[in-house]
Simulated scan of single mutants.
Amino acid sequence: MRPDRQQLIRTLFDEYIEMYSSRDDRLTCRFSHNFSGYAGSSDVLVTDREEWIRITRQDFAQVPDRINIEMLDLSLQDLTEQIVVVTAFFHIHLPIPKPILSHETARLVLIFHLENNCWMIAHSGISIPYGLAHKGEIYPITRLEKRNSELESMITARTSELAAANRQLEILSNTDGLTNIGNRRQFDLMLQTEWNRGLHSHSLLALIMLDIDHFKQFNDHYGHLAGDDCLKQLASTLSQSGRRAGELVARYGGEEFVILLPNIDKQTLFGAAQHIHQLIQSIAIPHAKTDLGIVTVSVGVAYLSPSNQQNPLELVRQADAALYRAKLAGRNCIRFMDER
């Protein structure tokens, strides 16, 4: 375990113990809305956060003075970036003359979950052998093993759920909400990834950047809902236009799209650009404000062999400059970075 993570987990545990020992009501604000837990010799698994807050306050009211925790052993587990577990064994010294629990070994399991940049307590389970042992047992081994099994199952299930949620969140954060293709964030990430790969493979990395001609006039004439449909049709067409390994189609912004093509030769690149240009014309989306009466695009194409003397933004700059020249040339055409 990394030292910084170990320190984080220990700090979370120490803060919990201090608040619990001092009967600090601020502890009730640290319970997750997805909380579960059980206390002492209870056989009831509490899954309602408000009920657990009630139990905690009842605990504090019954013994309002500070209690002493005599730590015997501590285990820290770093399950995921968002889930950590602490298992502690200790004696409880209550502020009363009778040492009712001071010689009994209690076990506390805490699960902390990172929620909105705050570490919340998702599970708290304390086991005290007092009153739990089955017939023929000195310590409640059978019940503790069952608790451990339930806890492991819960951790496995919650870890799986969190992993699935994180995967979905990653997909959503990299997807354009309107067109359902890659967004600017995904393009930036892939550009850096493919640039780094190209540094080792010494292969060409190419970028096709295209812009819908007179799109403002399209929106003004047909309305923004039709404009959204136009963007969706183009995105669908581009994403189905013969995907190669590593190729990315993304909405760069507004009516601009980009196609990132790693490990490609110039002849194939030129053919791909011409194919895309013709393919968009072939779907023939009506556009009364263009010469052809259909939606057309201006295309800029750039290619570089990644090197340490340049950065990935140079590829974007070259493609953008080529796209600008295509617009100056009257739109509905292709310009390459080495054309003037």
Rank of each mutant, 00 (worst) to 15 (best):
residue 314 E to W: 09
residue 68 N to V: 14
residue 76 L to P: 06
residue 146 K to G: 01
residue 188 D to K: 07
residue 104 E to P: 02
residue 121 I to P: 08
residue 265 D to A: 05
residue 260 L to C: 09
residue 271 G to F: 08
residue 338 D to A: 09
residue 102 S to I: 08
residue 322 A to W: 02
residue 47 T to G: 06
residue 85 V to T: 05
residue 294 I to F: 13
residue 300 G to T: 03
residue 282 S to Y: 10
residue 62 Q to D: 11
residue 255 E to L: 00
residue 40 G to H: 10
residue 251 R to I: 10
residue 30 R to M: 14
residue 119 W to L: 10
residue 54 R to H: 05
residue 252 Y to W: 11
residue 308 N to M: 02
residue 56 T to D: 04
residue 55 I to Q: 11
residue 171 I to G: 01
residue 77 Q to P: 00
residue 291 D to V: 11
residue 23 R to C: 09
residue 39 A to H: 07
residue 251 R to G: 01
residue 111 I to C: 12
residue 45 L to S: 08
residue 95 P to M: 08
residue 179 T to E: 08
residue 15 E to Q: 14
residue 63 V to A: 02
residue 323 L to E: 14
residue 134 H to S: 12
residue 5 R to P: 02
residue 196 N to L: 06
residue 92 I to L: 15
residue 237 T to N: 06
residue 281 Q to V: 01
residue 288 A to P: 00
residue 98 K to C: 01
residue 172 L to E: 15
residue 297 V to M: 11
residue 237 T to F: 01
residue 161 E to T: 05
residue 48 D to C: 12
residue 105 T to D: 10
residue 300 G to R: 04
residue 9 I to N: 02
residue 334 I to T: 09
residue 113 H to Q: 13
residue 284 A to W: 04
residue 4 D to M: 06
residue 256 E to H: 07
residue 45 L to P: 05
residue 207 L to S: 01
residue 270 F to S: 13
residue 227 G to E: 04
residue 88 A to I: 10
residue 321 A to R: 09
residue 203 S to T: 15
residue 112 F to V: 04
residue 75 S to C: 12
residue 183 N to R: 09
residue 38 Y to S: 14
residue 222 Y to V: 04
residue 173 S to W: 05
residue 333 C to Y: 00
residue 47 T to I: 10
residue 233 Q to H: 13
residue 311 N to S: 12
residue 252 Y to D: 02
residue 306 P to L: 05
residue 288 A to V: 00
residue 99 P to M: 05
residue 234 L to P: 04
residue 332 N to S: 15
residue 206 A to G: 14
residue 329 A to I: 12
residue 51 E to V: 03
residue 18 E to W: 06
residue 218 F to K: 00
residue 93 H to W: 01
residue 240 Q to D: 15
residue 308 N to P: 01
residue 318 Q to S: 11
residue 27 L to V: 04
residue 285 I to D: 10
residue 195 W to C: 09
residue 213 D to G: 12
residue 247 E to D: 15
residue 138 I to A: 07
residue 330 G to L: 08
residue 244 R to C: 08
residue 280 I to S: 01
residue 257 F to C: 04
residue 180 N to A: 07
residue 157 A to L: 14
residue 151 L to K: 01
residue 310 Q to N: 05
residue 7 Q to K: 14
residue 46 V to N: 09
residue 140 P to G: 14
residue 326 A to M: 05
residue 280 I to E: 00
residue 340 R to E: 07
residue 85 V to K: 02
residue 283 I to A: 11
residue 238 L to R: 01
residue 77 Q to W: 03
residue 196 N to M: 12
residue 53 I to V: 15
residue 98 K to M: 13
residue 155 I to F: 14
